[in-house]
Nucleic acid binder design. Sequence first.
DNA 1: CTGATCATGTAAGGGGTTACATGATTTT
DNA 2: AAAATCATGTAACCCCTTACATGATCAG
Lengths: 176, 176
Amino acid sequence: MARSNTLQYIILGLLTRQPMTGYDIKQTFDKEKAEFWSAPFSQIYPELNRLLKEQLISLVENTDESSRKKTYQITAKGHDYFHDWLCLPLAPTTIEINNDDFILRLHFLGVPHKKELNQLLELRCRTLNVEIAQLELELAEVVNHPEQFGRELIIEKELANKKADVKLWKKEIKRK
Amino acid sequence: MARSNTLQYIILGLLTRQPMTGYDIKQTFDKEKAEFWSAPFSQIYPELNRLLKEQLISLVENTDESSRKKTYQITAKGHDYFHDWLCLPLAPTTIEINNDDFILRLHFLGVPHKKELNQLLELRCRTLNVEIAQLELELAEVVNHPEQFGRELIIEKELANKKADVKLWKKEIKRK
DNA sequence: CTGATCATGTAAGGGGTTACATGATTTT
DNA sequence: AAAATCATGTAACCCCTTACATGATCAG
């Protein structure tokens, strides 16, 4: 995964949908995990406290006084911060986007963002095509080098995956 | 990448082929990178010194006294250690192997290990089929939940990739 | 009343990244 | 002579994982 505290964006992204507790967030991770990410409590709770201090989220005043539950909601500042990050790859200067950054954003670009979604998919296709061309060259170099047979299989796998991705995203772009 | 010092295995794997310096190792990473991994000098050099202390590698006596170059070779102990790790997933108790562990081993299982290679590919196919079945279930759950549209696309991508992998590995297994 | 689940954290340690530091050798 | 490349490291920092710690609530 990318190296710039992705957890904060995931948390903010979840909180754009509804207020949640740290426990809720962890459960969402466990339920929808596998394909993307996960995080233990020991990462989630400190991150929530940090986001609170940064005023990107705030505590929901609890009607139930007795409960120790801490329900968080995203602030206006948090909304802006999240949206800026989400649409960052769509800036005119961006020429490539890696798989992790792509997947992370894809997760939050749903139906209401069809235009941005298509832009993101097109950007990803451009990156993939560059990578495919590069891998074809590497494959040509490696063929008939039996000592690099394992690497050859990996390159073939990467090629198959990236080609499948391009096909899928092109299909999705065409869909109205 | 997996969490148990993969760098050591990559270094040992490279040294099974020929003695190398830390600088050579870094160059190999940069040249053959992209598909797999990379590591900066600040990780490579300390790791080489650790492996040396563990006697998994040793310094090649340099004929050229003036050079500060340190060329390393793998020891018998290092060979055993590497081979044990390489074939670990093929132990009868193993029921699954994740993509990172798989790719890492695939890289070092070349032509001389056709039998182990096929075992590894079959193991990976079993894991992939389990994951595919799981993703089909998740996809069925998510379809018609427009608020999870991004996640639906991710699941479709994962499915396409895993299916392409199974197809590729099955083809490779059949090859004599 | 006992165990499962809810609920929130701290501490220690590993591994990876970026920046910093130094000097020799080779190429232009 | 300057620039690029060869060559080996240390230090600080961040992220992530595992283990530990605590207590409330709910179901059987």
